[in-house]
């Protein structure tokens, strides 16, 4: 049985700067990483593999250089990697993205039974948390979002039991297989790749699925299939708050400034 894991390659957003003149993102020279939430989704998949013997297939949609991230997934322990890449897939919003990912899942399901579709709760570039639910809806799978613990998988009864972390409470949910799970970062601590797997991953095959393979109608995918169009990217003006001192170079002085400020506002007090 399969665990299908979706990962996305994202720019290391902490290294993205906003051009002060144009207000747009400066992406040049910013390294790409595996979306941090997806690292945890992959880890959870690999743990299911270790425990129940599932095969883990990792998929990513993106430009050709996404291969780097897929190889990282292989190094971590994924059994197969598939890259969904085609110019016509480009510019997709969550609607068009989930369309391609759902179709890819269907394609996999034709060959091997799928137990779980796993994804991270959200990406750090888009932050919508919509793609996971989008895939589930399109496939008609139950969607288990905000999961921080997979309690168990009952292979006989074909059920999975998870814990969802909601505001102020937990929810234990049982759902039939196949289900889609979106994982929180707190679910696990990702493993570190061992060297033999890293070496193996360096030249392991990464299957390419372009639209010739997928055969999807162009008006349902990519920019054309997207319901949202980006008009402008800008950084919002700061309307409140202030930046105190120079924390990096004068930490003690800055801490004093902060304490004085907090004292003045009666947020803290001296005994």
């Amino acid at each position: 049985m399969l665990v299908v894991t979706f990962v996305k390659q994202v720019p290391d957003t902490t290294q993205v700067k906003v051009d002060p003149v144009t207000g747009t993102l400066v992406r040049e020279g910013v390294p790409f990483i595996m979306n941090p939430f997806d690292v945890h989704a992959l880890e959870e998949s690999l743990r299911l593999k270790d425990k129940y013997g599932f095969r883990v297939i990792v998929l990513s949609m993106g430009p050709p250089n996404t291969e780097v991230t897929l190889r990282k997934a292989l190094a971590l322990g994924a059994d197969e990697a598939i890259l969904l890449s085609d110019r016509v897939f480009g510019g997709a919003d969550t609607l068009a993205t989930s369309a391609v990912l759902a179709e890819a899942t269907k394609k996999l399901a034709q060959k091997e039974e799928i137990a779980i579709v796993m994804c991270g709760k959200q990406t750090i570039d888009g932050d919508t948390a919509q793609v996971g639910p989008g895939i589930a809806t399109r496939l008609g799978y139950p969607q288990l979002t905000l999961v921080d613990l997979i309690v168990n998988v009952d292979l006989q009864a074909k059920k999975v039991k998870v814990r969802r972390r909601l505001e102020g409470r937990y929810e234990i949910v049982e759902s039939p297989l196949p289900s889609l799970i979106s994982i929180l970062r707190r679910a696990n601590r990702p493993r570190y790749p061992v060297v033999p797997r890293r070496l193996m991953a360096q030249d392991a095959p990464v299957e390419l699925w372009n639209n010739k393979v997928m055969g999807l109608k162009e008006d349902t995918i990519g920019l054309k299939g997207s319901a949202t169009q980006v008009r402008k990217i800008f950084s919002p003006e700061r309307t409140k708050g202030e930046i105190l001192g120079d924390g990096a170079n004068k930490p003690e002085e800055t801490a004093k400034l902060l304490i004085d400020k907090l004292l003045a506002k009666n947020i803290i007090c001296l005994k």
């Binding site: 601590r189 493993r191 570190y192 790749p193 061992v194 060297v195």
Partner: peptide, 11 residues
């Protein structure tokens, strides 16, 4: 390198 076994704070 072979076991990825080390104190967690090193990750």
């Amino acid at each position: 390198e072979m076991k990825a076994k080390f104190p967690t704070e090193l990750l």
